[in-house]
Design a binder for these strands. Structure first.
Lengths: 345, 345
DNA sequence: CTGAAAGCGCTAACAG
DNA sequence: CTGTTAGCGCTTTCAG
């Protein structure tokens, strides 16, 4: 800890007015001699301009906030990487806020409300659940907001989406092509935006295919919830005697890894007896064994695009809101690589 | 996006002076009638105080920054959780900055320098490498800084450390007790603070034991680097005909998981032919198979303690710097559960 | 090219 | 209890 020098002190030391000091430091009109004196004085004093004062005067902070729901999910780390790349290139500082999980929408709304205090010049948001309250709060936020996800039609907000329904369909079609005919969908909470979209993608995909399909919901998008739900899927034999599935399509990688564990607990061979696929194509796909087939939603790219929309809107707040989309892409790995083992079940 | 109301507007609408409005809103002396009028006016206008103005006036921002080197490592997520718990309870906002990896020390120094602008009231820092330059920069930072890690003796900085050398020793002793006698140490870069400490712990531990020990360095603390280095460890037969190890002690979980992969690539049974241990006891230990034995350094607790030191110092900047320590604890899991398979090698 | 002065939005004396 | 006033540190007219 040390003390902080102010512009007044720099000006005094340089023997010029505070206005000249400011101009010299900011590269505005000033004689070379003045610039030199001021620079020297600033260095001597270790002067650094005060962020609050500058923000108050300029009406801009030079900061951008990225708010994530669950920083434990690697998807958000990847998104953040993308955001950071663009934001840094535009001369902004990035700060990340975790809307830490428990209270969910309430947390995000609190955050939005606090953003009204002017902590940052812009906000990138990737909400799990979208309520009318949230949409209203976004509209009431005095700084530009870009959403990674999906908002109701007509919301005049810059958005980066992806077709995750199509992504899930890709996984289903792949499994079907491999010969899987009893496919279970392991979803997260259906009242979330991704949960709803992915469910729709699954339903649509199986509708065209000759497969026995079931759908299930885990309590949340975590590995533990996935393991528990998958255990049920793999052990419960309903009254209508649902057949045990030969494939599980999970709504994200965390759930899929939970399913991998459940399969292992039950002594099932993956992919021989059971194929498993995830969504998000996170780094976790490569750390499990067998490696996990997953649908990439290119989170990093989405982060980049979101940041680009944001910086552009900060420059020109009047431009029309834009909706960008990133296509899903299936990455086949070990967990679904082979055709089902003959004679299983 | 919407507009922002100012205190002056609220005061006007309520028909009182701006001072009364401020007092009413901040719960200072004010008649009930005034409070009521002002509250109503504020609500109507959607008034929220401006953070920059308040910070400028008060000389405090109400924010705390947590700076991490590699947000891709789950350790930091856990630390952050701990920091967040305490910081939120004290009424601060937490913002996370990733000093994004590539330029390393330079990044952290840049960050420290930018902190001088007064973005936050305090900073929690967990640096991978500690240089004299970094120490100097910390001393020159005008706001309280708490370091999670280890600083040179005599640095008058609040610090939360852990005995990671002892932690590595715990792993070595455990493996020895299980009957392992050819133990390889898979370290990260030796010029990092954790790298140096863990190396020391390994050397000390094997000195007392009847084991054939070798040490190796991966390029960084990542899974990919660990896999590569472990592959070498497991395949290279030196001129002095080093025996293939029956255990690998890795300096963190990421490296350990890399080693697990290398073992799998080579068709080695874990833990039968090779035991593997990690350090940090992250959530990743439970997602790999076999699950990973790891030394917990209680990252979350360290985060909590760091945040407590920080808030305490913000309250009272004159208190003597304190150094806290968290003991390591070994968590035995599948990757080292059994005695070595008879007759291997 | 430079200095004096105004003011961003807010809080905290200080008198009433 | 309330209003007036003085700044926090900085940028930016506006005259010289």
């Amino acid at each position: 800890m040390a003390h902080r020098a102010t512009l007044t002190q720099v000006a005094q030391r340089a023997g010029v007015s505070i206005a000249s000091a400011s101009r010299a430091l900011n590269g505005l009109v000033a004689s070379p001699a003045t610039v030199d004196k001021v620079r020297r004085a600033a260095d001597d004093l270790g002067y650094v301009p005060d962020a609050s004062a500058r923000a108050l005067k300029m009406g801009a902070t030079g900061q951008i906030t990225f708010a994530v729901d669950d920083i434990g999910n690697p998807v958000y780390v990847e998104m953040m990487t993308g955001v950071q790349e663009v934001v840094a290139a535009s001369g902004f500082r990035l700060q990340v806020t975790a809307t830490g999980g428990t209270r969910d929408v309430a947390d995000v709304v609190d955050l939005l409300r606090s953003m009204r205090r002017g902590y940052a010049d812009g906000l990138v948001l990737s909400p799990l659940r979208v309520t009318p309250e949230l949409v209203a709060e976004i509209a009431a936020t005095p700084i530009p907001v870009v959403v990674i996800g999906r908002l109701p039609d007509g919301a005049a907000v810059d958005t980066v989406m992806t077709d995750s329904a199509r992504g899930v369909a890709l996984a289903v079609e792949h499994l079907h092509a491999q010969g899987r005919r009893r496919i279970a969908f392991l979803n997260g909470p259906g009242d979330t935006t991704p949960g709803a979209a992915r469910r729709r993608g699954f339903d649509d995909a199986v509708a065209h295919l000759d497969v026995a399909a079931t759908t299930h919901e885990a309590a949340d998008f975590t590995m533990a919830a996935g393991r528990e739900a998958a255990h049920l899927i793999l052990t419960t034999r309903g009254p209508g005697s649902t057949p045990t599935p030969d494939a599980i399509v999970a709504a994200n990688d965390l759930l899929a890894i939970g399913a991998l564990h459940a399969a292992h607990d039950l002594g099932l061979d993956v992919p021989g007896e059971l194929a498993v696929t995830g969504v998000d194509d996170t780094s976790l796909t490569e750390i499990v064994h067998p490696s996990l087939t997953s649908v990439s939603l290119d989170s990093r790219r989405r982060g980049q695009l979101a940041a680009e929309l944001l910086t552009r809107r900060i420059e020109d707040p009047t431009r029309a809101p834009q909706v960008l989309s990133v296509p899903p892409l299936l990455h086949v790995r070990g967990s679904s690589a082979t055709t089902p083992q003959a004679g299983n079940r």
